[in-house]
Design a protein around this nucleic acid. Structure first.
Lengths: 196, 196
DNA sequence: ACGCAAAACTAACGGATATTAGTTTTTTAT
DNA sequence: ATAAAAAACTAATATCCGTTAGTTTTGCGT
């Protein structure tokens, strides 16, 4: 009866993916049913299968879209003229923007990846590990070149990645503060510390 | 046939809770079945109900045990003689230790609380909000008293809490580094920053 | 206006789930 | 040793899930 509403320049699958990201974020992948997803779109569950292959495929598409965005940005940062500290700063700012602009998708990618099926699960984890490794290397070089304190590079990388990830809790206060100020605060805290 | 193995000074329910925390962490609450849990203990699923009320109850017990531990520690820190910065440092160190010593439970509390049923869900969130609020207040006072940089207190609190939370990814490297060094690294990074 | 493809629908299947009921075995207390 | 209580078992129920099959409706190109 009802038809799937498509945004301009978006396929029906894209419309489904958007709703799926929202549902998966709110209820978790395993607790979200195709019937619920269909209802949120205004259609019966089997109708979805005219546009998608399976429930798993939705999760894959969401997770890898996010992972690819970050991988792409990392490449861009790496080829920039900035120093190590500057590159790290660029990455922090990108994470902040992504979290605010694609909240549902980033959240799902961060929280629900463990429900990916093989071989996608392994691919995803490998991509994450690669990303993390590159950041560790940036920090390591920063330490070598006396830009950064001599902290354990893995711990520092984890601290940075986790801190930006924590912006998922920021959604409620979104209107209190602009994206710029938020970026600046995170960069200031993570690079220069909290104490005076 | 088989009996539930109980640790010294622990009830059978405690033994179940320990296994449940491990299972829920690995597979997520919604994707963990009572049959799986029973199997990991070496018993049939219905036998569990001689010791517990429901699957939900397991999650509640895990989440509130962790929440209470943190709330209790917060009270202790508040009544200490340390300054604001010192109190924040104590909290960071406690988070690190909790994450390493009660990994499964803290992880489940952090990731699976959304599957709590009312009124427990509301209680849990209220308790978290209270905890977060107290930390924000510590930071606010630190800023007023010129101990801390003038950052947005909410953002700083979120950064700290998220960073320690991120130690869940540290499990793989656990043996690389001692708890003390890890604590020191986190405190140093979050309070004094990464740059020299 | 008409035909065809896209996309909606209804009905249904096989399987998994938490939990209950009822029964048997095991442990504990006297 | 024996009775009572605790805790295991088997069987079963009702519900929900992802997905398929088959059918009807919709909408676009001619």
């Amino acid at each position: 009866m009802a038809k799937i509403k498509v945004a301009t320049h978006g396929s029906k699958k894209d419309a489904i993916l958007k709703k799926a990201a929202s549902l998966f974020r709110k209820k978790g992948f395993a607790s979200s049913s195709m019937r619920e997803l269909a209802e949120s779109i205004g259609v019966e569950a089997p109708s979805l299968y005219n546009h998608i292959g399976s429930k798993s495929e939705l999760l894959q598409d969401i997770c890898f879209k996010v992972a690819n965005d970050f991988t792409l940005q990392l490449r861009e940062v790496e080829s920039s003229a900035a120093g190590n500290t500057g590159k790290i700063e660029q990455l922090i700012r990108f994470h902040v923007r992504m979290m605010l602009q694609s909240f549902d998708e980033v959240y799902v990618s961060n929280h629900e990846w463990k429900h990916l099926k093989e071989p996608h699960l392994s691919n995803f984890l490998a991509q994450r590990k690669l990303y993390e490794g590159k950041l560790v290397q940036l920090i390591r070089e920063g330490i070598t070149e006396k830009e950064l304190k001599n902290l354990h590079p893995h711990v520092a990388a984890l601290t940075i990645l986790s801190a930006v990830r924590g912006l998922e809790f920021w959604q409620r206060h979104k209107k209190d503060i602009s994206t710029d100020v938020l970026e600046n605060n995170m960069v200031q805290h993570l690079l220069n510390g909290l104490t005076i």
